Amino acid sequence: MRFHTRKWVKPEDLNPNGTLFGGRLLAWIDEEAALYAVIQLENNKVVTKYMSEINFMSSAKTGDIIEIGIEVVKFGKTSVVLNCEVRNKMTRETIITVDNLVLVNLDENGKPKPHGKTKVEYVKNRLT
């Protein structure tokens, strides 16, 4: 799994228990998945359709640095299926896993549009 993003847990990211608020973490995951899908599908009109069951395994506190990893499970006709792992760089523990995030490629009218992708492409390969 490639870890693309790091976040620094700040006081405003905490729940009343003093640990990372799950809703904040899910928002970060959703944003990272969308950015990844936009780059892979080469279209800024991508939406999250589905997020599978999530499994919180540990947490983070103020000052911890977390990493968000995204990996392609498969490409559909109009979608891409990703999985995600978030880990705490300080404790080296996995915080959460999400097995399936489905993002859909849209046309200019907001309707699903075939993207024609079948494998992960890296930016360096597209720019040459």
Results as ranks from 00 to 15, higher is better:
Gly110Ser: 08
Gly76Ser: 07
Ile39Asn: 10
Asp99Leu: 11
Gly63Asp: 12
Glu71Phe: 13
Val86Gln: 03
Gly116Phe: 12
His115Ser: 07
Asn44Ile: 10
Arg92Asp: 13
Met57Ile: 01
Asn44Glu: 14
Gly63Phe: 11
Phe56Cys: 08
Ile95Thr: 02
Asn83Ile: 12
Met90Leu: 08
Ser52Pro: 07
Gly110Pro: 04
Met51Ser: 06
Lys74Asp: 08
Lys61Phe: 14
Thr78Glu: 11
Ile96Thr: 14
Asn43Tyr: 00
Thr62Gly: 04
Arg92Ala: 11
Asn83Pro: 09
Lys61Gln: 12
Gly76His: 06
Val102Ile: 11
Ser79Arg: 08
Arg92Ser: 12
Asp64Glu: 07
Ser58Gln: 04
Asn88Arg: 05
Ser79Asp: 06
Val80Asn: 02
Cys84Gly: 00
Asp99Glu: 14
Glu108Phe: 11
His115Asp: 11
Met51Tyr: 02
Asn109Ala: 15
Leu106Asp: 02
Thr94Val: 15
Asn43Ala: 00
Met51His: 02
Gly110Val: 15
Glu42Cys: 08
Glu71Val: 11
Met90Ile: 14
Lys111His: 09
Met51Val: 15
Lys77Asn: 12
Lys77Val: 15
Asp99Trp: 01
Lys89Gly: 11
Val73Pro: 10
Asn55His: 11
Phe56Gln: 04
Ile96Met: 08
Gly110Phe: 09
Thr78Asn: 05
Glu108Cys: 11
Lys113Gly: 08
Leu41Val: 07
Val73Glu: 10
Gly63Pro: 02
Glu108Arg: 03
Ala60Met: 10
Phe75Lys: 05
Val86Glu: 03
Gly116Trp: 15
Val81Gly: 00
Glu85Gln: 03
Asn105Trp: 08
Ala60Asp: 00
Gly69Pro: 00
Cys84Glu: 04
Ile54Ser: 08
Ala60Ile: 14
Leu106Ile: 04
His115Pro: 09
Lys61Cys: 15
Lys113Asp: 09
Val47Ser: 02
Asn100Cys: 03
Thr62Asp: 03
Thr48Asn: 10
Glu93His: 13
Ile96His: 00
Lys113Ile: 09
Ile70Asp: 07
Thr48Ala: 06
Ser59Lys: 10
Asn83Lys: 15
Val102Pro: 01
Asp107Cys: 09
Leu82Asp: 01
Lys77Tyr: 11
Ile96Arg: 00
Asp64Asn: 13
Asn43Cys: 01
Ser59Leu: 06
Val73Gln: 09
Glu108Pro: 06
Ile54Arg: 01
Val72Trp: 07
Ile54His: 00
Lys77His: 14
Asn83Cys: 15
Asn55Pro: 01
Gln40Gly: 07
Gly69Met: 10
Val73Lys: 10
Gly110Gln: 07
Tyr50Ile: 13
Lys89Thr: 15
Ile66Glu: 01
Asn105Ala: 07
Val80Lys: 07
Thr97Leu: 07
Ile95Glu: 08
Asn100His: 09
Lys45Ala: 12
Cys84Ala: 05
